[in-house]
Nucleic acid binder design. Structure first.
Lengths: 151, 151
DNA sequence: TATATTTAAGACCAAATACTCTTAAATAAA
DNA sequence: TTTATTTAAGAGTATTTGGTCTTAAATATA
């Protein structure tokens, strides 16, 4: 798996928050979100705490509480979410796990992998939550997990 | 991590076997290989057993025993090794973990990821052990892990 | 044939990841 | 001010992956 589960859940949840707050512009309830996305409430809460402490979300306790984007949806990229949860390692690690692999002393597949992971980086860097939500609405894409499936 | 550790070890070991057998054309000792590559003997043995039962290697017990490529080094690709150990999932899974994600009902990053993983597939499919070993020799690339490092 | 050497097989242990549960703290609203 | 609601924090559990260890089976060679 390229991204951890926590990270994919973080992305889906961020998209959900971006979409909801473009509608209601208040805090989005984690409980409701966990039901809609079919992600365990407690696990989701923990992931969102990471995004909050990374400065991507803000939260409020109590009735009417929840989480909200800290910046505008057009100013948060999918890359921001990934770095907050999984870190930069996806974009820096050697495909064959060789420490210190780089242009000076490359592994046998360094050049090809470096190019591919650069593409991946660029893909995430250029996608904001705002644009992505717009695309989801326009094309009627799903971003919730199905109710039950083999994990 | 894109490939499992077992898979990266399997690739490094296969390259080692390809290189050795181009020199000595007998069986390559797993014990010696594990020392040279700095991979635990027992773990490496287990991985090589998978490659053997997948039909990529043959093995012989006893003194002078070891493993050897079953086909010519030019007829085994890195993709063969990856599929034998990690399966096809790297090349088929949705980046956001959404089951059933595909062209009909794509996730928000399906198109980009599908293209990137296709590149990855093609990279591995087009690299044989033979060519890769040749490249290693020509450019003096390393393919052993360092003696000690943080794992 | 006896012995040393080597892979095969599988039980076992450790670490990381994925997930759950309980309790505390904050806050809106009655 | 009390209460219900909601996030925060962190301990606890389950599953997967990574890695070790022991014993059996095969075989070259003395």
């Amino acid at each position: 798996m390229v991204l951890s589960k926590a990270c994919t859940y973080g992305i889906l949840a961020s998209l959900y928050v971006a979409r909801e707050s473009s509608r209601s512009n208040g805090y989005v309830s984690i409980g409701k979100m966990s039901e809609k996305l079919h992600i365990s409430f407690h696990f989701l809460t923990k992931i969102l705490q990471e995004l909050t402490s990374a400065g991507l979300l803000t939260s409020m306790k109590g009735p009417k509480g929840g989480v909200a984007l800290k910046r505008d949806a057009g100013k948060i990229t999918l890359l921001d979410i990934i770095i907050a949860i999984d870190g930069m390692k996806v974009f820096t690690e050697c495909l064959l796990g060789m420490p210190g692999c780089g242009t000076e002393k490359p592994c046998p597949v360094h050049d090809e992998w470096a190019e591919i992971r650069e593409d991946l980086y660029e893909t995430f860097r250029s996608k904001t939550l705002g644009e992505t939500v717009q695309k989801i609405e326009e094309l009627d894409l799903r971003f919730a997990l199905p109710e039950l499936f083999d994990r």
